[in-house]
Design a protein around this nucleic acid. Structure first.
Length: 637
RNA sequence: GCCAGUGUAGCUCAAUGGUAGAGCGGCUGCCUUGUAAGCAGUAGGUUGCGGGUUCGAGCCCCGCCGCUGGCUCCA
């Protein structure tokens, strides 16, 4: 048999007989590697460990703890689950079973409507199949054979998937009695799957099409080791503990009532948080040449017809009719800002013009999509529209990026940027698009911000930057986008007079830093687990008198601190100190100030910080100055 | 909107189709309190809403609403 050359990642070349499997090579390298191996990367493509090599290749052994290895493991677990479900619920049709992030799912059409209560039985069956340790075999067959097979098995979804495949690219994977149409790769045997758990069940449309049948989607996850699975499950629990829908009401920030689905009720403490963030934004924007405006929240539909919203966005707008007149509540501010721009003849010297607005916006979101503060029907953005000359795009985008950075670094949030470029259907000319995209890239590079490109993902009216925030639990949220817009200036016939006296079209930049304040606060609640930095905390200090004899002193301390700009309250309940400390801790109040005999006599407070613990006695004035400074610096804990 | 689940006191949860309960929280009183829960008492409910089955419904059936997990959507 001929020999082939296998190049390993360290550059060394191994000569082996043709038909050698990656697994055998792994064994030669070392038993430890062979044990951790779940797949192989052949010329950069992930493939099965036991698929024979037939030519010279570059080979990398994929171990179970690598990103690719984990994906293989989870994908195989999806098959394992499908096999178990098939055994338990005969007649189940399989659709697709991919890996998404740390989870996998399988969409199935099952005669029984499954719930989490069915999970233990399915998991038990999965464990059984693991124990049976079936070899997972790849088989390549012709399209005709595959069609015959899945027709015989009565698998309509697989047949539909087959329709889109070509002869020569069809593979099956078998383990025991189970067979599935699959590209692979998979772990060598079912015994490789050690730690898994089914997580949830939900509905999902076949092929994501709401006119197609609704399938059951079972989510699960798998890890190389039980301990890693448990760590993951603990992270889910931590996320549940931090859930803003639970913490928000518990901290007195906001509530929801079924009388107004999708609209938050902001309680006094939540409103402080809200206003503090809004004012933070105001302060930064005023310093950067933004002008705050306020525009109508209800307009005649002709405005929305002119802006194009009526055509493209009507279904998401709250609409109404009075005196035969069609009206709508604004879902965005841009058309109103365009009207204001147009009130005057603008000179090239006037640009850029930056209108900022914090007013209420409403969007009709489908009832099933509402989710706490994260998805609402009524919200406010820290919205702004910049009217700029084309030669100002780069500089203005650079300014917006700087603003992003100030806001997110102040809050200790990591973020990443994606640039979405010209889609297939677009407005304007290729040249304009190219120039705009170039300007965005130059601004990003000037700002020193790394970014990824999403080719073809821009809006039809202009390219955009999406900002993704990563929170304390490493979850990623999209908060804001910066979009260049060539269409609205056109639709509203916006112009400016250039140096040569000619009328030119400005470019519009839509941008928001927080995005929706509601959503952003939801993210912050979960990010900080309710323990906001002092400058954001609704109550920054709580004075805890040891007994009624010290109430007067406590109120005096509170008065002094209030005058120093600190949000402070006195716990005047008839309770023990331990009780009041516990309550203040649960309310995540940054500073607890215990006052009694010693403090009253010396004009001090005994300071306890929610996370740093007992800080000892401090002079009231000195404490006040230190906290005022912490607030002014917007310090993180 | 769609599929599934779910809805009992402010919160967390009990109650084989047979008189709706507990803990926490609230309020009142006692204790006079020193760094994560003192003691006692007390109020609080048309069991989401509307129909139906039944001698009898928190529980079973139908419709509606909210919420949850997803899907779809997201200028």
């Amino acid at each position: 048999m001929a020999a082939i050359n296998v190049t390993l990642p360290d550059g060394s070349v191994k000569q082996v007989p043709q038909g050698t499997t990656p697994y055998e090579i792994a064994e030669q390298i070392g038993p430890k590697l062979a044990k951790a191996a779940v797949a192989a990367k052949v010329d950069g493509k992930v493939t099965d460990l036991k698929r024979p090599l037939d030519r010279d290749v570059a080979l990398e052994i994929v171990t179970v703890d690598s990103p690719e290895g984990l994906e293989v493991l989870r994908h195989s677990t999806a098959h394992l689950m499908a096999q178990a479900i098939r055994r338990l619920y005969p007649g189940t049709k399989l659709a697709i079973g991919p890996v998404v992030g740390e989870r996998f799912y399988y969409d199935i059409d099952c005669p029984k409507s499954l719930t989490v209560e069915d999970f233990p039985a399915i998991e038990a069956e999965m464990a059984k199949i693991v124990k049976e340790n079936w070899e997972i075999r790849r088989e390549e067959i012709s399209k005709a054979d595959a069609e015959a097979l899945f027709r015989e098995m009565d698998e309509p979804f697989k047949l539909e998937i087959l329709e889109g495949l070509q002869d020569g690219e069809i593979s099956l994977y078998r383990q025991g009695e189970f067979v599935d149409l699959c590209r692979g790769p998979h772990v060598p045997t079912t015994g490789y799957i050690k730690a898994f758990k089914l997580l949830s069940v939900a509905g999902a449309y076949w092929r994501g099409d709401s006119s197609r049948p609704m399938l059951q989607r079972i989510y699960g996850t798998a890890f190389p080791k039980q301990s890693e699975l448990e760590a993951y499950l603990q992270r889910l629990e931590e996320a549940a503990r931090r859930d803003h829908r639970r913490l928000g009401p518990a901290l007195g920030l906001f509530s929801f009532h079924e009388e107004s689905p999708g609209f938050a009720y902001w309680h006094p403490k939540g409103q402080i948080l809200y206003r503090t963030l809004e004012n933070f934004s105001r302060e930064l924007q005023e310093a950067r040449g933004y002008q705050e405006v306020a525009t109508p929240w209800i307009s005649r539909s002709q405005l929305w017809e002119q802006s194009g919203h009526w055509e493209h966005y009507r279904e998401n707008m709250f609409r109404m009719e009075y005196e035969g007149e069609s009206l709508a509540v604004k879902p965005m501010n841009c058309p109103n800002h365009c009207l204001m721009y147009k009130e005057q003849t603008r000179s090239y010297r006037d640009l850029p013009i930056r209108f900022a607005e914090y007013g209420p916006l409403s969007r009709y979101e489908l009832s099933g999509t509402l989710h706490g503060l994260m998805r609402v029907r009524g919200f406010h953005q820290d919205d702004a529209h910049l009217y700029v000359r084309e030669d100002q795009i780069e500089q203005e985008i650079f300014g917006v990026l700087e603003l992003f950075d100030v806001v997110y670094s102040t809050l200790g949030l990591k973020y990443s940027i994606k640039l979405s470029t010209r889609p297939e259907k677009f407005l304007g000319t290729v040249e304009t698009w190219d120039r705009a995209e170039q300007a965005l890239m130059r601004a990003l590079e000037k700002a020193g911000r790394p970014y990824e490109i999403n080719p073809g993902d821009g809006a039809f009216y202009g390219p955009k930057l999406d900002i993704y925030v990563t929170d304390a639990l490493e979850r990623v949220w999209q908060c804001a986008t910066v979009q260049l817009d060539y269409q609205l200036p056109e639709r509203f016939d916006l112009t400016y007079v250039d140096a040569d006296g000619s009328h030119k079209r400005p470019v519009m930049i839509h941008r928001a830093i927080f995005g929706s304040l509601e959503r952003f606060i939801g993210i912050l609640v979960e990010h900080f687990a309710g323990a906001f930095p002092t400058w954001l905390a609704p109550v920054q200090a709580r004075v805890i008198p040891v007994g009624i004899n010290y109430f007067e002193y406590a109120y005096g301390v509170a008065e002094k601190l209030k005058r120093m700009g600190i949000r402070v309250e006195v716990d005047s309940r008839n309770e023990k100190v331990g009780y009041k400390i516990r309550d203040a801790q649960l309310q995540k109040i940054p500073y607890m100030l215990v006052v009694g005999e010693k403090e009253a006599a010396s004009g001090t407070v005994a300071v306890r910080h929610r996370s740093r613990g007992d800080l000892g006695a401090q002079d009231v004035e000195a404490f006040g100055r230190a906290v005022a400074d912490e607030i002014a610096r917007r310090a993180l804990d």
